[in-house]
Design a protein around this nucleic acid. Structure first.
Length: 632
DNA sequence: CGAGGAACATAT
DNA sequence: ATATGTTCCTCG
């Protein structure tokens, strides 16, 4: 279905050649180092390549967001060198070079073919690209004040102004938080929203269906699929949705979000306001435990954006195009009970056309630069809904993360958004299994409030000029959603097991004097969220690296493509600040590449422990010349 | 609350 | 059987 979707959107096919020899290796194998290193190389050479231009002038850039060779809208030549094998995982050091940061700006230029990095059979949690699925959102905010401007094409490429086909429409959702939430263990704050996006869950663990455990959504198990979120389903087939279910008293259709244009179209054809019709898709019952629901739904038709050459234009067009729907986008019921003076003020800077959370944005644009001055600790035990809050994410030094927007000279305060994203450098997107959790209390100095954008909870924090546009993030905890709950979501393809690394993603949208809006984004270093540290893994050793290099060389020779026999990959070890710094020099002869005769024949990248991922090895790198290199 | 630890449940 | 996921319990 995915491919179909892509085709429908006119995605250009990625011509990358994946030579992945990766053995279908289960994650466990990585850990056990049972597989011999292998390396795959794929070369993709787009017709045009102008990385620099791609992002520099653009506020944001949307990724294809598709798992299957999600051909990036903008392609650049790339070589993917993927080695599978035996590299142990290294602890991510917090003080090290912010990989995310480094890669971030690059990533925005081009996205590697997702599949190219891994064998589909060994889907690695950290890299799966799925949290994009749109599902219904139901949200209730503990804060009491919340609004939802979730009208941005959150999860599907086609919703992108730049990519979406004309005429496409989407159903957006808006939710009204209403029912109070019961929190099993305690903190009233804990849950809230959580139930919202995922529907409900029992107070008791619901384990994945598989074997004995059954999902007790509503006391019953039965449905594993929830038609209400036709995200990837063929069509809107209203059935009962275990997740959304309803509570005894409060029953209201939850918000649904449709990613599939066909579905949307179908629904649109059925109803304009969709409310009534969609209601049918909601189950009559819900899991017992989820007593709280945020009933309410607001469907909105999203006009398709025009394909413009300039992303910036796209954005504007997009904005204006959506304006008419703005009204529908906001749930009137939300705009009440401000929680903090700051939030009670109008927020003109919040446009209804904010880029979807899975869009890749640059961390800087023009004079503006969003930076994480103090990185969060590399480990933070997330809490479950069944637990009380485990506090805010802290910084290594004991304080809290700090984010600052540089280059902003206006007097208008801005809003810093924060959500939990994947730790996958290849594609930063909301993490399906974690949500940011708002922390309140005397120890918290930073005001914040929550907003739902698609299935993702977003914490909004004021960025004030008087504070030098600097915010101390002491109000953000991390909530873990049960894997079984998430995996059951229609359209969800990510797997939760061992997918415990996240990143704090910060965004800021700046309305410029000229009326244009610039959206910036920066992600923190990866944060391990599980209680126990991942199983012990041997450190990366030179031998392994060399083995990988050798394997890579072999593969390059085998590939034959742009790599000539004299091509080679060399790993060099050196120390730097106590970290292992591995320098990989990939010398490739690309003479055969007529389209890029100017490309340098030698590429070099550096892999450090920071971008080492348990199941995937090193995160991919995009070399200066646009070449992507990954070593799994 | 906010942790830390660990029992208990599943997945590999 | 081992590793990872979730829920519980305890303590300051």
């Amino acid at each position: 279905m995915k491919s179909a979707e892509e085709d429908a959107y006119g995605y250009s096919q990625n011509n990358s050649i994946s030579l992945a020899l990766s053995n279908p290796c289960p994650p466990s194998q990585y850990h056990h180092l049972q597989t011999s290193p292998s390396l795959s190389i794929s070369i993709s050479q787009p017709s045009s390549f102008s990385p620099q231009d791609n992002m520099s002038s653009v506020g944001y850039f949307q990724t294809s967001g598709t798992r299957s060779n999600g051909a990036p809208t903008l392609e650049s030549p790339r070589i993917e060198i993927t080695a599978y094998g035996q590299f142990p995982e290294d602890e991510v050091e917090e003080n090290s070079v912010p990989v995310a940061k480094r890669v971030n700006s690059i990533v925005t230029l081009t996205l590697p073919s997702i599949d190219g990095y891994r064998d589909p059979t060994c889907l690695s949690p950290a890299s799966s690209v799925s949290s994009r699925s749109c599902h219904s959102d139901a949200s209730s905010y503990e804060s009491g004040f919340s609004y939802n401007y979730d009208n941005s094409p959150q999860n599907s490429p086609w919703q992108s102004p730049c990519v979406s086909p004309k005429g496409s429409s989407s159903l957006q959702s808006c939710t009204l938080g209403a029912s109070p939430r019961h929190s099993p263990s305690g903190s009233p704050h804990t849950s809230i929203t959580d139930d919202s996006w995922m529907g409900t869950r029992g107070s008791r663990p619901n384990s994945p269906c598989g074997g004995k455990r059954k999902y007790s959504f509503n006391g019953g198990q039965s449905h594993k699929y929830h038609p209400y979120s036709p995200n990837h389903s063929p069509g809107p087939s209203p059935h009962t949705s275990p997740r959304l279910s309803v509570t005894e008293d409060t029953w209201l259709p939850n918000t649904n979000q449709y990613t599939n244009s066909a579905i949307v179209a179908a629904i649109n054809a059925l109803t304009t306001d969709g409310l009534a019709d969609l209601g049918e898709g909601i189950p009559l019952k819900s899991r017992k435990t989820s007593l709280e629901h945020s009933p309410s739904m607001n469907l909105k038709v999203e006009p398709g954006g025009e394909d413009t050459g300039s992303l910036e234009l796209c954005q504007e067009d997009f904005s204006s195009a959506r304006l008419p729907f703005k009204k529908e986008t906001y749930c009137s019921g939300f705009l009440d009970v401000p929680q903090h003076p700051y939030w009670s003020k109008p927020k003109p800077y919040i446009s209804p056309s904010l880029p979807a959370l899975d869009w890749q944005l640059p961390s800087s644009s023009g004079p503006y630069s969003l930076q994480i001055d103090v990185q969060p600790k590399s480990h933070h035990r997330a809490h479950y809904e069944t637990e009380g809050s485990r506090g805010a994410v802290k910084a290594l030094a004991g304080g809290h993360p700090v984010v600052q927007l540089h280059g902003y000279m206006e007097s208008e305060p801005l809003t810093l958004q924060l959500f939990i994203g994947t730790a996958d450098d290849r594609l930063l997107r909301p993490h399906a299994f974690y949500q940011v959790h708002r922390i309140t209390g005397k120890t918290v100095s930073t005001p914040s409030h929550e907003v739902m954008q698609s299935n993702t909870k977003v914490l909004e924090i004021p960025l004030l000029p008087e504070s030098n546009m600097r915010a101390i993030i002491d109000c953000a905890g991390i909530l873990k959603l049960r894997n079984s709950d998430i995996e059951l979501r229609k359209g969800e393809t990510d797997i939760g097991r061992k997918n415990t690394r996240v990143r704090m993603v910060f965004r800021v949208h700046i309305n410029q004097p000229n009326g244009r809006m610039v959206s910036l984004q920066v992600a923190s270093n990866p944060i391990e969220c599980s209680q126990r540290s991942a199983q012990e893994l041997p450190l990366v050793d030179k031998q392994s690296m060399e083995s990988c290099a050798a394997s890579g060389r072999e593969q390059m020779l085998l590939s034959g493509h742009n790599f000539q026999p004299d091509s080679k990959v060399v790993f060099v070890e050196r120390a730097q600040d106590g970290h292992h710094i591995w320098e990989m020099e990939a010398k490739v002869n690309r003479e055969s590449s007529k389209s890029h005769p100017d490309q340098p024949s030698t590429s070099t990248c550096i892999w450090t422990e920071e971008n080492w991922y348990p199941d995937e090895g090193f995160s991919p790198f995009q070399l200066p010349d646009g070449v992507w290199v990954s070593c799994n």
